[in-house]
Design a protein around this nucleic acid. Structure first.
Length: 480
RNA sequence: GGCCUCAUGGUCAAGCGGUUAAGACGUCGCCCUCUCACGGCGAAAACCGGGGUUCGAGUCCCCGUGGGGCUACCA
């Protein structure tokens, strides 16, 4: 049994899409699961599409997501170079070899002739014109320096079939496949050729890629067969959609991995979530770390229908990761976001983080959850009304002054003590706990909803602010 | 247009000829509770349509409909 070798072969054309990342993740997971190797290869044969920082983004994203590779452009390996633009000579050699084997041929047709083959709809296919050139004619043109490409020689009849591990049997008639260009006139190969040569030379046993290659795979198999190479196992993956009609893509302004990280989604949650888009674990446990994914991944759980990216579920997962973190871990991740809050620097950071930890799913929500602390202002008396607590502005008028007095006397300004003191006050006043607590909380925060009860808010605010706010609130009540 | 391919709740998704058609997110309700959140419990919610095959079809076959892909000197 040969060692399993999978690869991720992105084209450095911009940002790392969620779909690309998932393809990389599955390749990585399968290799790990099988104790094999995962390889990174850059497919940069199209100079026109090259984007400056794209390569670095690919490295950074994979690293950030924890997807490590055993061989790749920046770390080397036995099958290098791992950048296609550095392998031009290799492709040329194999293209010429394929010509010798009859699987390809030189083509000297110019653009005009190719255009003339197309019908009014721009649809047309190459007519194998140059396939019929004699050896001498070819040699002559080559010697004369006539520009050429090398085309694949696809049979006119027959059917190409293969067994895809997720889609099952896929068949395409050769008559529906054009003699595509393998080697461009600039000497570089097209994807259609480079992927075959590289996957073979790099010993790739399992090709994991997007379903857009489903119907072109038979022509790759034609090349494997012509060379006498063993065909790899194919695993095509359905696309990740933005909605029922559109694929998730940066072009549509959809979130990339780094966008999601910047928004404050927990990285592990992102990886966990995308693993679930198109794959389902055997058990009902969906929350899994990368390590757990490595153990549980299996090709049989792969799904063949497109999956719509659901940010709501990602949020939930992110929140789950946040909640189970230790205070230190959470602080490390959350502090940069906490610094953007109006409350930052004015309150005990540890307390702020503790309050926000179970109330936030993504880190970027932190400022808005805390800003209210610094937005204290005139209180609408209606806020004091609460049916269940049986409280209203009238009750508040007697509660607030008494509460101010009580709080002034609390030594240890901490939740437990404050709660006890306020409950005791309720007893003294002959009121329900809720009547006192509700009124105090409203007076302290000027908000109907706050991330914590009256005593917690009081602790956070501190004695000085509490007393000041209480007296201010009392004043506003009297104006009514 | 031709070819490839997909189709279970709003979303992800289990199911692989016989099930009360899982589970998760979301939604809604209840409980807990000093509001919110957390947590607990519960509910609503699906087999695209039509033909077959079969004792029996979400599961197999065909057609239709709808979606996605390919049809580049892009990948």
């Amino acid at each position: 049994m040969n060692e399993v070798r999978t690869r991720f072969a992105p084209s450095p054309t911009g940002y790392m899409h969620i779909g690309n990342l998932r393809t990389a993740l599955y390749g990585y997971l399968y290799a790990k699961k099988e104790g094999g190797k995962f390889i990174l290869r850059l497919e940069d044969t199209d100079a026109k599409r090259y984007v400056e920082d794209a390569v670095q983004i690919i490295y950074d994203t994979l690293k950030d997501a924890g997807i490590t590779y055993d061989e790749g452009p920046d770390i080397g390996g036995p099958c290098g170079p791992y950048v296609q633009s550095e392998r031009a000579a290799i492709y040329k050699k194999y293209a010429e070899e394929l010509v010798r084997l009859g699987g390809a041929y030189y083509c000297f047709c110019d653009k005009e002739r190719i255009e003339s083959l197309k019908d009014e709809n721009g649809v047309g296919r190459y007519d194998k014109h140059c396939l019929h050139l004699s050896k001498e004619e070819v040699a002559e043109k080559l010697a004369a320096g006539v520009p050429y490409v090398i085309r694949q020689n696809v049979p006119l009849e027959g059917t190409g079939s293969y067994e895809d591990l997720v889609y099952g049997k896929v068949s395409v008639d050769f008559k529906d496949i054009e003699d595509g260009i393998l080697l461009k006139s600039d000497g570089m190969p097209t994807y259609n050729f480079a992927n075959v040569v590289d996957d073979h030379l790099m010993g790739i046993t399992h090709v994991i890629r997007g379903s857009e290659y489903l119907s072109s795979t038979p022509k790759y198999n034609l090349m494997y067969d012509a060379f006498g190479w063993q065909r790899p196992v194919y695993i095509h993956l359905p696309p990740i959609m933005k909605d029922a009609h559109n694929k998730l893509s940066k072009r549509n302004g959809d979130a990339s991995y780094q966008d999601l990280v910047a928004k404050g989604y927990v990285k592990q949650a992102i990886v966990n979530y995308i693993a679930l888009l198109g794959w389902s674990p055997k058990t009902n446990t969906e929350k899994m770390t990368l390590r757990e994914l490595e153990e549980n991944f299996s090709l049989s759980g792969l799904n063949k229908s497109p999956a719509i990216f659901d940010e709501a579920k990602l949020r939930w997962l992110s929140g789950e990761y946040l909640k189970e973190m230790s205070g230190e871990e959470f602080a490390a991740l959350a502090t940069p976001f906490l610094e953007k809050s109006k409350a930052y620097g004015k309150y005990d950071a540890e307390k702020l983080l503790a309050i926000v930890k179970t109330r936030v799913d993504i880190l970027s929500e932190i400022p808005s959850k805390l800003d209210f602390l610094e937005e204290y202002g005139k209180i609408d008396p209606a806020l004091y009304f609460n049916k269940k607590m049986k409280s209203d502005a009238q009750i508040a008028k007697t509660v607030l002054p008494a509460a101010a007095q009580t709080l002034a006397g609390v030594e240890k300004f901490e939740n437990a003590e404050l709660y006890a003191a306020l409950v005791a006050l309720a007893g003294d006043l002959g009121m329900k706990n809720g009547q006192v607590l509700w009124c105090v909380r409203i007076a302290l925060t000027a908000r109907e909803n706050t991330p914590g009860g009256a005593s917690e808010m009081a602790e956070l605010l501190g004695k000085e602010r509490c007393l000041a706010r209480l007296s201010q609130a009392e004043g506003w009540l009297k104006e009514e």
